[in-house]
Amino acid sequence: MKFSRRNDAKSEDMKISAQNMDNRNDVVPAYKSLRRNFRRHIKERIIESILFLAALFSVFITFAIVYMLVSESMVFFEHVSLREFLTDTQWTPLFDDAHYGILPLVSGTVVSSLVALAVALPLGTIIAIYLSEFAPFAVREIAKPFLELLGGIPTVVYGYFALLSVTPLLQYFFPDLPGFSLLSAGLVMGIMIIPYVSSMTEDAMRSVPMHLREGSYATGATRFQTAVKVVVPASMSGIAAAYILGISRAVGETMVVTIAAGMQPNLTWNPTEPAATITTYIVQVSLGDLPHGSIGYQTIFAAGLTLLLITLIFNILGHLLRKYYREVY
């Protein structure tokens, strides 16, 4: 073996390095083997397992939610038939003459949500189209964080606004409007949801690649035509997801309706009446002092299960829509 491992050191730099090569065993741990280092391997696996458990914990939360709602509801449905629950038109579980029909709560939820969506979806979409396709850069840079800030205002504050500002204002125009109404709560809920809808819709529209817009402009289309005929269809899945999120927020919203819509179960489709929603009923019971394990206690879990199922349907719908509309750019 004639070759030499040592270099002919040429420069100062190289001398240092050659010297280092010689005594590198003093400094850098010697490389004994290429084989797997078990201690290191075990440590890595332990860390990975811990992180995995943290991620798995989110699945545990879902299971816990479902388990808790279903197990308490099961006890409830031993007392009340599913038929009565779904078809009875009265919800008076705390009265002597107890009725357990969820319909009045569902109607309150649906009406307040429809009012909210009638406000949030069109206004949110218009704002999104304006910000994404029309607004100058500076306006967008200011409006976007502003909308984000508004999305962060606590819902109890919006409830205060509905009860003490919007309702009196509405009563000025419609003197017959009662102090609590689904209309007032729904309107404010709609305003509250605008930032969510507009921000997500705008994100979806901005992710449409520029060359699609340029193609449209090149054929002589105006901004509005480009927005409506090219950008909106291309970002349909994102817009649908934004709408679904808006719906699911309206259905699950609690404080605004609790404060401004009253807590009386009322089977009505008229937004100018006061009515309880599923969420306000849960709050109402929680505010009282119902003993753990009583039928009254179980009703809120049955109501909660209904709410969860409704939001779940919308979440699945959103998921399917997104798959259906999956754009290929």
Binding site: A64, T279, V283, L307
Partner: peptide, 11 residues
Amino acid sequence: AGVPSIIYGLL
């Protein structure tokens, strides 16, 4: 992320 906050309250 889409579960209403009141459901967390029930849990």
